[in-house]
């Protein structure tokens, strides 16, 4: 039923039973996908609010622009690779080629781990150049935004590791396939989010 039909329905009128016998789900997707989508919106709200705070704070007197470490370009590439591998894993799993899908899936996660390591190196580089958290608002936001993003990657990796284990034990491959799909969506989202954060931080 379309949204418009929904909100204009006259529930007090008895409607023909045919209307009343269809199973009632608002969307033709799995519950997991709906919960994930909703969760991604929530994460989006978090980072939008941080971005707004960033711009508000930037207007205030003591803002000193900071150039981002060039290492971030490398980590961005790592995250893109990770996302691509997840997408390939998803496609391969779709074609029921589970052995190959497993390799790609594991690879995707490994590149995400490399990304996290890269981010940690970038932090180290920054702080050895004298930019630590308390150094000024620009570097404070840098650590805050990149840090929270990494937290989300790590959360994703936790699900990834559970899915990997299930991949190896091989039972219930349909549900593994579904997990791979969800992980892929999550990874793409985190990639887009990272590009957004990178752009915000570059605007200094």
């Amino acid at each position: 039923m379309s949204f418009y039909k929904n909100v204009t329905a006259k529930p007090w009128e008895y409607s023909s039973p045919t209307l009343g016998t269809g199973p009632e789900s608002a969307f033709a997707s799995s519950s997991e996908r709906i919960a994930l989508t909703l969760f991604l919106v929530v994460v989006g709200v978090i980072f939008s609010l941080l971005a707004v705070s960033y711009y508000v704070r930037m207007e205030l007197g003591d803002w000193v622009p900071m150039s981002d470490p060039s290492l971030l370009w490398v980590t961005t590439a790592l995250l893109i690779l990770s996302s691509v591998l997840f997408q390939l894993a998803r496609n391969t799993a779709q074609g029921e080629n589970f052995l190959k899908a497993r390799k790609l899936f594991v690879g995707g996660g490994l590149f995400a781990i490399f990304f996290v390591i890269g981010q940690a190196l970038a932090w180290q580089q920054l702080s050895s150049n004298g930019f630590d958290v308390a150094n000024g608002p620009a570097s404070a936001f840098f650590y805050l935004l990149t840090g929270l993003h990494v937290v989300h990657i790590v959360g994703g990796l936790w699900v990834w590791s559970k899915t990997t284990l299930r991949f190896f034990s091989q039972d219930d491959l349909t549900s593994v396939k579904h997990s791979v799909e969800l992980c892929t969506t999550y990874w793409h989202f985190l990639l887009v989010l990272w590009v957004f954060i990178f752009a915000v931080l570059a605007n200094t």
Binding site: M1, N6, V7, A9, P11, L19, G20, T21, G22, P23, E24, S25, A26, F27, S31, I34, A35, L38, F39, V42
Partner: peptide, 24 residues
């Protein structure tokens, strides 16, 4: 709250009994 909330919303959207439209 987020764990509970995702659950409540998904349940209402997806797990209603047959015939139970949103407007019912």
């Amino acid at each position: 709250f987020t764990m509970g909330g995702l659950n409540y919303v998904t349940t209402v959207l997806q797990a209603r009994a047959k015939g139970l439209t949103m407007m019912r």
